[in-house]
Design a protein around this nucleic acid. Structure first.
Lengths: 158, 158
DNA sequence: CCTTGACCTTCCCATCGTGGCAAGGTTCAG
DNA sequence: CTGAACCTTGCCACGATGGGAAGGTCAAGG
């Protein structure tokens, strides 16, 4: 089948299928005389596997490992489990990070009257920093460790 | 002061200060005869404001609005609050998304014996999709809506 | 045979925030 | 004068994805 069918069958866009090929996540597809890529059911399943892994947040390199473990008849479940556990730990760390930010924002929102007046504790907090605005900037702050920035959700534009 | 001092004083890297200038987040800095950028204390505070906003995850365009609200003497706290509330909602949505992924992974991990044998429910789940692997692929799946991918944490390399 | 439309190819660009590096100019202290 | 430390601009990279252009292919229908 052509790439369009493979895309519809696997839920991976044709664009990404080509991309996965160029980065070597999938082997180079066989070509027709005209250069059209040609896929088998097994290829489609591999693509679906990749999509499922992405859906639970595995990064490309992790997926590469998962694929090799999948294909490897002598794999141990231990390796897979370790990979997944590491990934879960990362996700939990991110959740904790976001929760901390969320708590900060919720706190600020609760303290902002939110009417037409210009005084705003949210603005003040941003002026004076994440710490309790004890006293306005007096002497230069001792270089707080930069908080980890919040990644904007990399969501497909479409 | 030069850009290096401004960077140290604000906690924003010189690189990013230049970047913020090119995207118009801060006005073009005054230059010395030799072309060196020149900053005031007020500039440093503006930069620190930006950094604090980034630390709670505001995106560049949101920060642009926050800055204009900060400078605007006729601003209403309402506007600031609305912005922050929208941002909080986004963050909470991401937390929910990550928690769903986390739950899925935790479930899979719990069901994986994790020893040296090759059978692995994690691999199987990735093969058959995020849904309960009721019965192996029989008839093509009805095009599940793609789950939102998990953004890898965009953390500064350094 | 020719047209039309759906499909395919490759290649380049954009996102978003950040860093790295290179080639070169400036400034200041020794 | 020299060297270190600083500054300048400009380009490239990341990761995952989409957009689009310019052009080739294929099948159905006239």
């Amino acid at each position: 089948m052509n790439i369009g069918q493979a895309a519809r069958g696997s839920g991976v866009s044709a664009k990404m299928i080509r991309h996965y090929e160029t980065i070597g996540l999938i082997p180079r597809a066989a070509r027709s005389l005209a250069g059209y890529r040609h896929y088998t059911e097994a290829d489609v399943q591999r693509l679906a596997f990749i999509r499922h892994a992405r859906n639970v947040g595995f990064a490309t390199e992790e997926i590469r490992e998962l694929l090799s473990l999948w294909q490897n008849r002598r794999r141990s479940a231990r390796d897979v489990k370790r990979l997944a556990a590491e990934h879960l730990a990362e996700i939990e760390a991110r959740i904790a990070e976001l929760q901390s930010i969320s708590a900060t924002l919720a706190h600020l929102l609760a303290h902002c009257h939110g009417d037409a007046r210009p005084e705003c504790p949210i603005i003040d907090a941003l002026r004076f920093g994440p710490d309790p605005p004890a006293h306005p900037p007096r002497g230069k702050a001792p270089r707080r460790p930069r908080r980890v920035p919040l990644p904007a959700p990399r969501r497909p534009k479409n």
